[in-house]
């Protein structure tokens, strides 16, 4: 389980306007039939890309981008981790959006992809900048919770505690959770249903 500090991400951005982009669109269900995440990036937005000749993901001007700007409620629907895995494996290291679906956000944190939340106006500005000047290099500064380009600095909201975990490189929760295993046993012993209400075992 490798885990690394995430402090700053610098690079180009793919603009993905529109709200409510669900995980069926990010990675259609028929591409989930695999026992590894290897190659899942090939499924990224694949149906949309096939039907949209100028899809932002395929636009050569955005080639090599390592961040994505999105609208409201990004990642809604299915809990499939294949969606953030596809984004990460495609090369997206951070997403900035107006809001994110709950399970998607948890999955992103679990695999070390920071999410930054900004106002709709600010996100629209970022999307416009990436669309009109795709070579723009943006900097996402996790510590100072901001995205910047040129002279422009836009504040973003990163959940304080998650921010600390990215900066310290402790976002992989498994070690933390395992460290508390003795306490897990204690909690289990207090819950009567764990023995199916057999009083003698309590």
């Amino acid at each position: 389980m490798s885990t690394k500090r995430i402090e700053k991400i610098v690079g180009k951005a793919i603009p993905m306007p529109r709200d409510d982009i669900d995980t069926d669109r990010i990675t259609p269900a028929r591409f989930l039939k695999s026992i590894t995440f290897e190659g899942i990036e090939k499924a990224l937005f694949c149906d949309e890309r096939e039907n949209t000749p100028d899809h932002p993901v395929d636009n050569p001007a955005h080639k090599g981008a390592n961040m994505m700007f999105v609208g409201k409620n990004f990642g809604s629907g299915s809990s499939r981790e294949h969606a953030p895995q596809a984004l990460k494996r495609f090369g997206i290291d951070v997403l900035i959006g107006v809001s994110f679906a709950e399970i998607f956000a948890g999955n992103c944190f679990a695999i070390g992809v920071p999410l930054g939340v900004a106002s709709a106006d600010d996100v629209n500005e970022l999307i416009k900048q990436a669309q009109e000047e795709p070579q723009t290099r943006f900097t996402v500064d996790i510590r100072n919770a901001a995205v910047s380009y040129g002279d422009r600095v836009i504040p973003i909201d990163i959940q304080e505690t998650r921010k600390a975990a990215f900066l310290a490189g402790t976002w992989d929760m498994l070690a933390n959770l395992r460290g508390n295993l003795p306490r897990v046993e204690e909690v289990a012993a207090r819950l009567p249903y764990v023995t199916n209400f057999d009083s003698e075992a309590q």
Partner: peptide, 29 residues
């Protein structure tokens, strides 16, 4: 509250899970 194991450094709560249901799609990895 009755399922909280610990408050984690991430600010999250570590919650005991009473039942884990698994199926073929989201478990191999």
């Amino acid at each position: 509250d009755s399922h909280t194991v610990a408050r984690l450094d991430s600010g999250q709560d570590q919650i005991f899970i009473g039942l884990h249901l698994i199926h073929e799609v989201t478990t191999p990895q």
